[in-house]
Amino acid sequence: MDKKINDIGELSGKILVFGGVYSNLQALQSLQELAEDLDISPENCICTGDIVGYCSQPEETIQFFRSWGAQTIAGNVEIQLANDEEDCGCDFREGSRCDDFSKEWYPFAKMMLSKESVNRMKNIPEHIQFRYAGKKVFVVHGSFFNTSEFIFKSTSWDKKQQNFDHTKSDIILAGHCGLPFSDSKNEKLWINPGVIGMPANDGSNKTWYAILDDSSSNLVEFQQLEYDHVKANELMLKNNLPAAYAATLKTGIWDNMEILPAEEASRQGELIRF
């Protein structure tokens, strides 16, 4: 089956890139306010997927995202919900803590979402492509070949190069792994802006996003987002969602590191600097 790829033409000016809203309405509201303050239009705001996830307001988050008018691709969560699947499709190891927690938050999200919101997910493209600063940019969730593939900075360049070769792109914007990073080689640039819905295991309750700027010598700048994490935490606990994930919103530390390669796991609690 052909993939749904939305070609949005040529973009210019600042572009706000973010991933993993994870049903965290408070984080999304803060990000939208920031975009307005920076005069970045909704068309130049791009999400790498997983608008729905661990937190407590999936329907409200979807509705707010729609009203904002930002662009998005489908994360594994949206794909699973659109297909009426019984799990999040996150590629967690069966029986792992992540897998166990998903059996709590995913049914909650599925129950809380309106039929209209789920139906709209069926029309979300799997990828977005566009031209920017003389480069071809391609947006993936995990990778082009597997929406749920975890690709980190420490992941071999060969695996990243395969994505560039197949998409014939110069820049790839990706999501899914939850950690912000950039990696470059052979005049290709892989950017993961991080996620706004959960901290990056760095000991900070702030989350991450990135801004592309074609007028700057540094094409990408990673920044942290402040939002009402206390309210988001309280709402998760009120709705009996995983307490360990709720705690992460405050501590910035992941409950477990099952998905992380050794290099990334060794940096738990270290503030991320670019």
Rank of each mutant, 00 (worst) to 15 (best):
E36M: 09
A82E: 04
L260A: 04
L212E: 02
M1L: 10
Y22K: 04
K115N: 11
R93D: 08
A109E: 07
N163V: 07
R66L: 09
Q57F: 06
N218R: 12
L31K: 09
N76E: 01
C45G: 01
K14Q: 13
R93T: 12
Q63R: 15
S266I: 05
L11Q: 07
V77P: 12
P261I: 00
S12E: 14
I79M: 06
A244Q: 12
S143F: 06
R97A: 11
M112R: 15
F164G: 01
R66H: 11
N44E: 04
N192G: 00
D2H: 15
C98D: 12
G75E: 03
S184C: 04
V140R: 06
K4W: 01
F145P: 02
P261E: 00
C47A: 15
A174P: 00
L25E: 08
I172T: 03
M121D: 10
P199T: 03
E10P: 04
F181R: 10
I40F: 05
A244Y: 04
G75Y: 06
K122E: 09
N256T: 14
R93L: 05
Q29R: 15
V137A: 03
D2Y: 15
Q224L: 07
P199F: 04
G9C: 00
S102L: 04
E59Q: 14
A243F: 02
N233E: 07
D84K: 14
D165R: 13
E126L: 13
L28F: 12
Q161F: 11
E85Q: 15
K159E: 15
E149D: 05
T61V: 05
E149C: 01
N146E: 11
T48Y: 01
K238Y: 09
V139F: 11
K3P: 00
T147V: 13
S184V: 00
N256D: 13
L25M: 03
L81V: 08
Y227L: 05
M198N: 11
C55L: 09
L25T: 04
M1I: 10
A246K: 08
F130D: 02
S102H: 10
L113D: 10
V139M: 10
L219K: 05
P180H: 05
N239C: 01
G175D: 03
M1D: 13
C177F: 07
N163G: 02
